[in-house]
Design a protein around this nucleic acid. Structure first.
Lengths: 342, 342
DNA sequence: ATGAAAGCGCTAACAC
DNA sequence: GTGTTAGCGCTTTCAT
């Protein structure tokens, strides 16, 4: 494998000149620059990542802590994972994916061994041991999702409250007065998960303002259990004409329940929800509603992280960014004016 | 950050002794070993990945090329991605996730810069530019999925032919004589994708042996399009009593179509298919059928790759491993003896 | 504008 | 069983 010394020798110049020609950190005559570029091509030289790492103590790798646990929805999780990977590349970074228990237990190793330059954490819960660990780490870290307690780290989340309010208001404007909200699992409230609490706050506020009566049903990731629950709720509340879906995973069982009850969407039942930027068709019909801005969120998270990596000296206060997108409604034809249900 | 020299100095020994105590590549007296371990803990020493990489020319990182294109099913893709990441850790490797265009265009960079020690490629198509590139690369690579043409690389796939035959035979044994097969998209056959061709071969063979009449419907990732197609097929072939689902993404639209036609599963319609090791409840009802051995496949792929990385000198012929699992049927209650459809 | 040389943290051949 | 030392490939300060 040819190294920077081979290139230098080939041209009879010093290694530093080649190095500076590549990095641009010192002026190099245009003629020399051209000769170096030619030699690099001729000798097929690629700078070694290992040598570079040792000299600069930068790896150009971002670590992504993605537990991918039971209650993660695969299509949603993949959007975030892919989003981080793509955003990293736009800054010249690669992404090290750390899943399962290692996402919790491997943090010290990654930080202390200097495997990565910074960390992005997915699915952070409030009792998450990673929180304290990342706060105390010598490496920058960004959380995707806002924990309940204030945290000494950058965080990026969507505006769940606006999203909830927007969905309710949309149904209200179509004349719906009774709506079902397929909300977060009960555990999410017990743990005071911000997304659950704030979404509910938005829903509640808009519902009282717009005079819509809400029945909330907690929905998890188990298809059959959700199907039964939703089915029973639709039967039990037969004045309901609209449904709000907070979580991707609730869409499929809802569609199944509606089908079984021969409720046409949107004629008999208006459905609005939060759906991914990139629709997962396997999950079911894409819904009218607000987007889950996974692309904007991951891009922002990586931007913040790279900023801290590149300006390791600067002291920035923790930033809690709320990404736009929850306010705009995308019409995919699953809502219509309220009618009395048959 | 404390380094190996600090530890050595602290004990008044040489750096090599510390190094060897850690790697075990040279005998170290038990007493010395204990003193070193203590010092390491006391000084909170972690070996630097960068120094190690430069000295050993090993990064302990496996690259995962995952295009995650349009026709990838998110839940399936995530199983493979997560499987590779977990398997890598069992060998002490981390996983660098490379998605999108970079999964194609970044191969040279990863290889030549020595960012990773080896590569695993997902979703390899026959005209895939990565094939030639990986065959010519100086780094070991393993394909998840068997390309049509013989290839100078290790490959790991499941036995699609056995899977197809097993599913047909299962329906036949329950007395079904007319079955729908929700197969691969048309394009998969045009491109001679091995999984499509071999699954169909297994289905066809078993169907003729067991005297089952098959109607095959190509199904892609678009929910609405699939729903219409499947609905029409169930209506058009009203003697069909069993359905075989090749691909996860066909399950949701099938369940929706059956619901709309008020066909109960399994009473009116027996459904069998290929489902993930880790059943994704969010996708819909888990199906009776053969498993998609994503765990075994990724484990095997990483095993093969690590073997080549560790024994870089050994010359092994390319190995095409076919993972078991397609032959065993898992009953999840979605099939039943054939009855005449109402 | 360019060169010389020290050093990043570790391993492993060579000595004893 | 342990020590010495020459690299691995690059950057960057100090000279010129």
């Amino acid at each position: 494998m040819t190294n920077i010394g081979d290139v230098a020798r080939h041209l009879g110049v010093s290694r530093s000149t080649v190095s500076y020609a590549l990095s641009g950190k010192r002026p190099v005559s245009t003629e020399m620059k051209a000769r170096i570029d030619a030699a690099i091509r001729e000798l097929d030289y690629w700078p070694s990542a290992a040598g570079l790492s040792l000299a600069t103590s930068r790896r150009n790798i971002i670590g992504l802590l993605a537990p991918l646990g039971e209650n993660a929805t695969p299509s949603v999780a993949l959007q975030f994972v892919d989003g981080v990977a793509r955003s990293s590349r736009t800054h010249g970074f690669d992404t090290l994916l750390v899943t399962g228990r290692e996402a919790f237990e491997g943090v010290e190793r990654l930080v202390r061994a200097g495997v990565v330059d910074g960390l992005v954490a997915l699915d952070v819960e409030n009792a998450d041991p990673r929180l304290a660990e990342l706060e105390g780490a010598s490496l920058p870290a960004v959380l995707l999702g806002q924990p309940a307690r204030p945290v000494q780290l950058d965080t990026v989340d969507m505006d769940w409250e606006v999203a909830g309010a927007t969905l309710v208001r949309h149904l209200a404007e179509l004349g719906h007065r009774r709506a079902l909200v397929l909300g977060a699992p009960e555990a999410a409230y017990t743990m005071e998960m911000t997304y659950a609490v704030r979404f509910r706050a938005g829903v509640t506020r808009a519902a009282s303002e717009a005079d819509v009566e809400i029945t909330e049903i907690p929905v998890g990731n188990d298809f059959s259990a959700s199907l039964t629950k939703i089915h029973d709720a639709l039967v039990g509340h037969n004045d309901v004409t609209g449904v709000i879906v907070q979580h991707e995973a609730a869409a499929a069982p809802l569609l199944a329940a509606a089908g079984a009850l021969r409720l046409r969407i949107p004629e008999d039942l208006a459905v609005a929800g939060i759906t991914l930027d990139v629709v997962d068709h396997a999950l079911g019909r894409p819904l009218t509603g607000v987007g889950n801005p996974s692309v904007a969120m991951t891009r922002t998270a990586v931007d913040l992280l790279v900023e801290r990596i590149v300006h390791a000296d600067a002291v920035l206060p923790p930033r809690a960014v709320v990404v736009d997108g929850g306010g705009e409604l995308i019409d995919r034809g699953t809502t219509a004016p309220a009618q009395r249900r048959r």
